[in-house]
Amino acid sequence: MAADITLAAPIGTASQPSSFAEFWASFRENKGAVAGLVVLSLIVFVAIFADVLAPHSPLEQFRDAVKLPPAWYEGGNWAFPLGTDALGRDMLSRIMHGARYSLFIGLSVMAVSIVCGVALGLLAAFAGGWIDSAISRVMDLIVAIPSLVLAILIIAILQNPSLEKTIAAVTIVSLPRYVRLVRASALSEMGKDYVIAAKVAGVGSLRLMLRTVLPNCLAPVIVQAALGVSDAILEAAALGFLGLGAQPPTPEWGAMVGDGREFIRSEPWIVTLPGLAILVTVISINLFGDGLRDALDPKLKRS
């Protein structure tokens, strides 16, 4: 029986520590990826400890300090290092708390899409027939509509925009990528010898799906998930910008850019700073995701 298990799982449990070391060695070579990881860790740290780190409450309106510029400009005040917005709220505190919302949206969209995407993808690959056709066609349908338009449509149907509905809309929009990826790699794995061997050995189909095939499809899914976080953050920010995401006074970055755009000529920091925050976060996630792909993809690794 021991032989069967080895056949069923070529990436054996015993070899995992060394494979992580191998991954880290190759990831470390990529300077951009490491920089991305460092910046991302910093953002995560700020997001987790925003309550302690932020100098003010993100919602408190300082009525006698409205539209102050960042502290190093004339008229600035070090009590508000990055200035204040049109209602006298501290920009730095709002951006710190905004990191929390953006990362929360990104991670929850990723988590939900992975779970649903893997489930639907495996089901399509294993069941075949009309189930496969149905799942694939629905995914094609979702891809056929421009993602932002579809997200707006979903919000419109759900009515009363809120953070949760933003997450739901962005998840539905990003689902097809995961489903297609899992289905394609599961199908290609299923033709391989070790799967056939496992089948011959009488492994049940659920175990075949989850223990035999799934671990070998995970590498591309992990990469897709890492990059998907930044896509989700961008889409949620776009919805927030249009007023269809988090509702006021939530300090969500996209909504902050949307509310501040009338000041682009007179008080540009109100619209620029949250925009920069989105930019930095998305770039660092993308760099990290690229590094992840390079390290996990054997073909790229050896070239």
Binding site: Q61, L87, P248, P249, D259
Partner: peptide, 10 residues
């Protein structure tokens, strides 16, 4: 109106 709403809310 949105900004006024936020001020009233506060």
């Amino acid at each position: 109106p949105k900004r006024i709403g936020e001020m009233m809310q506060a």
